[in-house]
Each structure stands twice: as structure tokens, then as C-alpha cells.
């Protein structure tokens, strides 16, 4: 498992905590949303960086009130054909202004990297060897012309003429 972020492979400074495991007081853990929901009072006064892992069935309303508390949100992609996280990512970025790391975990494959980036993901856990090799080679297949504004993208000249207004 490797972590691809902002165009390169980086060291993952976060630790993933599974259901029932102890959490380090130093933070930098990615814990299940259910853990956060159970423990949020205990960490209310703490400032350690917390990450949560959100399964695709959860809705944003389940955690949006605590959004400022999270430095990282990991959205689970159970199968690469499951597109729910794309909407969740856009909502987190565009509507709720989430500025922390938005990480795709699960079945993350090379042909989905571009649309995920366009929806606001900025980090990807990679376990597929073909995807790993393509990213190492700097090859992200995709298109370069878009008819829709993506998250944090400046409108492209010619995309939709009225998008040129900024």
C-alpha cells in the first residue's frame, strides 16, 4: 500500500485505526466514523489531528457538524464502479469548504484518478500494481478538456463561454 498525494508518492504519516483498537493520544489516526461518534466528547477539548474514515452508506449529515475538527477525511471506494464518494467529495469541498486532506481508499484504480481529482480528492491509497506503475511513470489517463467546472479548477477558455467570467 502506498500513498499518492499532490503528484507524487509520499510517506503516510497517518495511522489507520480499526474498530475496537486503542487510539493514540498523539492523534494522526484515521478512525472509523463510528469511533468518532462514540468518542467525540472525550476529544472535544483536544487538538490532536483526527482523521475519519467514511463508508459510502454514510451521509455528510452524520459528521458535518464536526467538520472543522477533522484534518483528514478518507472516503471508502468499495468497488471502483461505486461513485458515491465523488458526490461526497464535491459537497465537502464546494459546499462545506473542507480544506483538509481528502483521501480515496479502497479500490482506487488509475482510470478513476482524474475524475476523483476533479471532484476534490487530493490523496489516494494505492494497492493495485498497474495503477502504482502508471502513477510512478507519471501517466494519469484522462482528458484535458472539460465541460464542467471541477473543484478548485479555474474555468477553461472555451469550455462554456460564460465560465470565463471569474
Amino acid at each position: 500500500m502506498t500513498l499518492y498525494k499532490n503528484g507524487s508518492f509520499v510517506h503516510d504519516s497517518w495511522i489507520t485505526i480499526h474498530e475496537g483498537e486503542e487510539i493514540s493520544p498523539a492523534g494522526h489516526v484515521i478512525a472509523p466514523l463510528s469511533w468518532w461518534q462514540a468518542e467525540r466528547q472525550a476529544f472535544a477539548e483536544s487538538h490532536v489531528p483526527i482523521g475519519i474514515r467514511v463508508e459510502p452508506g454514510a451521509t455528510i449529515d452524520d459528521f458535518i457538524a464536526d467538520l472543522p475538527r477533522f484534518a483528514l477525511i478518507a472516503l471508502v471506494i468499495p468497488k471502483f464502479q461505486d461513485g458515491r464518494a465523488y458526490s461526497t467529495a464535491r459537497l465537502l469541498r464546494e459546499r462545506h469548504g473542507f480544506k483538509g486532506e481528502l483521501r480515496a481508499i479502497g479500490e482506487v484504480l488509475i482510470d478513476q484518478i482524474q475524475p476523483m481529482l476533479r471532484c476534490g480528492f487530493d490523496a489516494f491509497e494505492i494497492s493495485d500494481p498497474v495503477t502504482q506503475a502508471a502513477l510512478e511513470a507519471g501517466r494519469i489517463p484522462g482528458v484535458t478538456h472539460f465541460y464542467q467546472p471541477g473543484v478548485n479548477e479555474a474555468p477553461q477558455a472555451g469550455a462554456r463561454p460564460w465560465l470565463r467570467q471569474v
Binding site: F80, G83, Y86, S87, P115, C119, V143, Y147
Partner: peptide, 14 residues
């Protein structure tokens, strides 16, 4: 048609 072409959010619908 234009808006829906390769829409990043709606390429993997149910």
C-alpha cells in the same frame, strides 16, 4: 449533452 459529457461526479452512477 455538453454538461453531462464525462461529468466527473456522475460517471459512476448506480
Amino acid at each position: 449533452r455538453q454538461w453531462s459529457s464525462i461529468h466527473p461526479e456522475f460517471t459512476y452512477l448506480p
